[in-house]
Nucleic acid binder design. Structure first.
Length: 411
RNA sequence: GUGCCCAUAGCUCAAUUGGUUAGAGCACUGGUCUGUGGAACCAGGGGUUGUGGGUUCAAGUCCCAUUGGGCACCCCA
């Protein structure tokens, strides 16, 4: 089906590697994994996600009972719903992460599918921007663990309140905010004259357009308190090299308040955000909870794969097992089965030859299995209570007592 | 949802521009090697050219539809 993928074992190894890396780093910071249902009531998204996301990109249908349901297009509303439902009994601050599959009805292209896996990390219950700093520190560490270092990704950060203040200083009326934000969000894609023309059309004076353009190009937040504090925290967390202030970052989701951020490939070979996130202090309230400030960020397996591919950083992850058990003839097979069972009991990943083919073929199969060692059960050695152990990398072989086998294989 | 580009063996690509039976490298299988794997040599399997129609004496090649992939919008991870 369009925009979906089959994960054959070769690809599944990569996905597992990615997920395990995300889990490991998240847990290092005390974050706990959660999950929710694949389906939600459509109403959950209707209020607060982006209009286009809900109306045009969400898979919706009616259940047999006539309820309007949606396949989750994102995870944050589910998270907010879950938190609101048990708000009083949850230990705070809430540090959670998840890696759900989500669906969006869009035209697929590079870095964009219809079904994808989305790592989400969220920190709820912290009002100060220290929350932003910690969440981004986790993100930086995940990127590093995936093989991306300094200069290979950049987190671009803005604050919507800062942007609103800027509009205020320029005397731009609040009623024009949405239209102006929209143009600001696209400034990098637009030619300067188009940007200016669009703003004029939105009702800005030439003076306001010039002032806005100058401020956006300056990339300097001055003394704006929330951003100043945030940068101090970046320093303390040691991630200053990975962040940059960019007043043109706005983002489309309606629920963001204050800080917003996106992760980009600095080489721009991949010309879309790899990750996106920000602060959403009102979402839990909107879903019936008590006020609870929150920060979160998400990325998908699809965009990360594209990023790693562009940077030549896709890892080589060959199939790996410990032992391949081969045998000389059908007479030795029962013994081979027994030996394989014993090896598995000791925790060694053991693949047993299950066909009745020649030793020649078996060793070839052993080589292709990814096994470090091959065990060869053969009559002469068996008579002495031994089997041959072949190191498939060193190409060396020696006979060892069967009872010593596991110990020797475990090094 | 709009516009455009692409589709040949498992993979990467050929096919004298509409003309015999669609080829090559790599990969795969078997053999040279009857108690031992990555080399070399030899041989072999594998395709209704994404799918379905149409034009033509003749279609991988031209036309239409459809499916999938990509690019630009839109949006976004």
């Amino acid at each position: 089906m369009q925009g979906t993928r089959d994960f054959y074992p070769d690809k599944m190894r990569w996905r597992n590697w990615l997920f395990e890396t995300c889990r490991r780093v998240s847990q290092l910071y005390g974050y706990e994994e959660y999950d929710g249902p694949f389906l939600e009531y459509l109403d959950l998204y209707a209020a607060k996600s982006g209009e286009e996301l809900v109306n045009e990109q969400t898979y919706t249908f009616e259940s047999r009972g006539g309820e309007k349901l949606a396949i989750r297009p994102e995870m944050t509303p589910t998270l907010a719903r879950m938190v609101a439902a048990k708000q009083n009994e949850l230990r705070k601050p809430i540090r959670w992460f998840t890696i759900p599959n989500v669906w969006r009805y869009e035209r697929p292209q590079r870095g964009r599918k219809r079904e994808f896996y989305q790592y989400n990390i969220d920190l709820l219950g912290v009002e100060s921007v220290e929350a932003e700093a910690e969440v981004l520190a986790v993100v930086v560490e995940i990127m590093q663990a995936l093989g991306l270092g300094k200069g290979e990704f950049v987190i671009r950060i803005n604050n919507r309140y800062y942007l609103e203040a800027l509009l205020g200083e320029l005397g731009i009326d609040v009623s024009k905010k949405d239209a102006v934000f929209r143009e600001i969000d696209r400034i990098e894609k637009l030619k300067p004259e188009v940007f200016r023309a669009n703003l004029s059309e939105a009702g800005l004076t030439d003076e306001q357009v010039n002032g806005l353009e100058t401020s956006l190009r300056e990339k300097n937040f001055g003394e704006y308190p929330a951003l100043k504090t945030l940068w101090e925290k970046f320093e303390q967390y040691g991630i200053s090299d990975y962040v940059e202030f960019d007043p043109s970052i706005v983002r489309g989701l309606l629920y963001y308040t204050g800080t917003v951020f996106e992760v980009w490939d600095p080489s721009k070979k991949f010309n879309r955000a790899i990750m996106g996130g920000g602060r959403y202090d009102n979402l839990v309230t909107a879903l019936g909870g008590q006020p609870l400030p929150a920060v979160g960020i998400a990325f998908s397996d699809v965009t990360i794969e594209e990023m790693l591919t562009q940077q030549g950083k896709m890892p080589n992850l060959p199939r790996e097992i410990d032992v391949y058990v081969a045998f000389y003839s059908a007479n030795e097979k029962p013994t081979a089965i027994k030996i394989a069972s014993e090896l598995r009991q000791t925790g060694l990943k053991t693949e047993l030859n299950i066909l009745d083919n020649s030793l020649d073929k078996q060793l070839k199969a052993a080589n292709n299995s990814g096994a470090r060692y091959a065990i060869i059960v053969a009559p002469d050695e068996l008579a002495r209570g031994e089997v041959n152990v072949k190191d498939l990398q060193q190409r060396e072989q020696k006979a060892v007592k069967i009872e010593d086998l596991a110990k020797i294989l475990k090094g």
